[in-house]
Nucleic acid binder design. Structure first.
Lengths: 155, 155
DNA sequence: TTACTTGCAAATCGTTTGCGATATA
DNA sequence: TATATCGCAAACGATTTGCAAGTAA
């Protein structure tokens, strides 16, 4: 008597997984929906959401909660760090060797730390290159708060 | 010619700020709405949202984006660390002295890190105490994924 | 054959916004 | 008095869900 579901590998699920695994960036559900529709034009957004949920339950992908107003998904299911670009909003992997975090499990306030979530904010390679060509001066963040960045063209 | 708004200190705004400053935990907008209604019964949820936004723009409170499906607010506007309890879902401050983070601005992948967001996951003092009394064994996190924890009774 | 999955559409939930009335500086 | 703010209700955007039909194992 198992509580597990016998998940099936449908064509929809397979295409979503493949698309995600072939990407460098970590897209939102609606971005994945657009990509997958070029292969399966009749797929629905609900199916995309359901499959992303199941694939992450199966441990095949990662659900990222970096963006507060939209979830993002990562075809690499091993835990690692991410950076969100302040210019294009895309999310990329960060080399874990460049980061060190130290904390004591037992906090003087009486809390017990079990795990942590960290993500970085900065500029991606592509936008840095664009910056040095166009002189758009991204590194000045003043007045950027709350403004919507350009929609990323993924891939 | 200033772009600033001349914010006013209305009774609603003052009560929201005071409530938030007198709290140890960091509530959601609807939790604040419930609290404030006991003082100002005719206040609307929209007003609570608008004021929380303005108070954080004024730099008097902090908008926390720890919980992905609901924003939380902190009466202490200085940047500091937080922990969310896996049992009651409440968010508390973490003593910053117990945490050390090291990273290099320039990532080998070509990204440039400007800032970071970190928060901790664990157990709050209250729930640890409840655990040792009731033997509910919180520290076993298996099967907890996605489950809704009990609604916190704030204060 | 069975029960998992789909497409579709409607529902949900947190949050934002337009409006005419009210209150603060 | 000018305009920031209010309460109310409707709108919004991301996500979830109910249902009848379709399909993988």
């Amino acid at each position: 008597m198992s509580l597990e579901k016998n998940y099936r590998m449908t064509s929809q699920r397979k295409v979503i997984l493949d698309e995600l695994r072939n990407m460098y960036s970590h897209p939102t559900a609606d971005e994945i929906y657009i990509m997958v529709r070029s292969i399966l034009p009749r797929i629905s957004l609900g199916t995309v959401y359901r499959n992303l949920e199941i694939l992450s339950k199966m441990g095949l992908i990662l659900k990222l909660e970096i963006d507060t107003h939209q979830k993002r998904f990562d075809g690499n299911s091993k835990k690692h760090y991410h950076i969100q670009c302040i210019n294009c909003n895309r999310v990329y992997d960060i080399n874990p060797k460049t980061v060190k975090i130290n904390y004591s499990e037992d906090n003087p306030d009486g809390c017990k730390i079990i795990d942590y979530c960290i993500h970085f904010i900065g500029l991606c390679k592509e936008c840095i290159e664009k910056d040095s060509i166009c002189n758009t001066n991204f590194t000045d963040r003043s007045g950027l708060d709350g403004k919507k960045a350009e929609k990323p063209n993924f891939r």
